[in-house]
Amino acid sequence: MAEDPAAPVLLDVAGLKKYFPIRQGLFRRVVGHVKAVDDVSFFVRKRETLALVGESGCGKTTTARAILRAAEPTAGTVKFLTRSGSVVDVTSEPRASLRPLRREMQLIFQDPWSSLNPRMTLLDLIGEPLLVHGMRSASERQGQVEALLKRVGLRPEYMGRYPHAFSGGQRQRIGIARALALRPSLLVADEPVSALDVSVQAQILNLLLELQLEFGLTYLFVSHDLAVVKHLSDRVAVMYAGRIVEIGQADRVFSAPRHPYTEALLSAVPEPNPEWKTRRIVLEGDVPDPAHLPTGCAFHPRCRYAIDRCRTEEVPLAADASGHLARCIRADELTLAGVATPVV
């Protein structure tokens, strides 16, 4: 879906933090914090896809969980535009009143093998959210489940079967049907295709794109796979060590990144074409330990453009003229390599 700047903001995350205490000693005293998510702010417009990308441990999944309050955020606000038109702060809502909100924000999990209860049939699995949210009539539920199964490409006759009878791709379709059951407006998809085979991955990506158009869905798409992200997002937020280091229009982030980490990340993706010998930037070392982050810019020890100021100065996210944000002192002076756009 093309970016529509006039579309209302569905999800507005501001200053989101999730710290995990590190306890030590006899009295389990808190001696420090793992800053898994540190001051993350972004918004997602209605019917748009925002991708959160980054490597393991960068905080992308924790961000998604904190937004849904599957993990209690340490600080920050998550404003969500409900169907009734009111704006609710998910973080300050009492737990009891989260349920109606959860109808509107659903989650698709990464691992289709562990996210479905093996003792429930498809009818129970997909019908459960309907029952919980008040659809008492069994025949009505069955009708809904039938329609959902058809829509995600599974045969309705299968609704009496258990998840073990299905392949990974089919299970992911079941997970999607379950998430769609309550007609949510926001779908948070945490690595929905990472566990799937290539040929099946394409089927699920196509399905997600179709469903978005059909149901007017908004996606918050969490992934480490940049090719997948490029394929379906409007805007991309790149995370590193708990913070967003760059956020902008997908085509801009991919063609003209403004943060050296994004540049390195893009160059590291092996391209499925042996004729393209890409200029590879191999980063030294590993992602920093989130309990002991480097001072200044957390990326500076691995950055080939680092200058002295990077070691000491905290860098804010700063925008260029087009509103493309990056957390780098040198963002304006550097010309970083992106992915060349092919002529089609």
């Binding site: 394409a202 090719a227 997908a250 391209e271 756009t341």
Partner: peptide, 9 residues
Amino acid sequence: SIPSLHVPP
């Protein structure tokens, strides 16, 4: 069937 950085999204 593989998405690539070089194909139109």
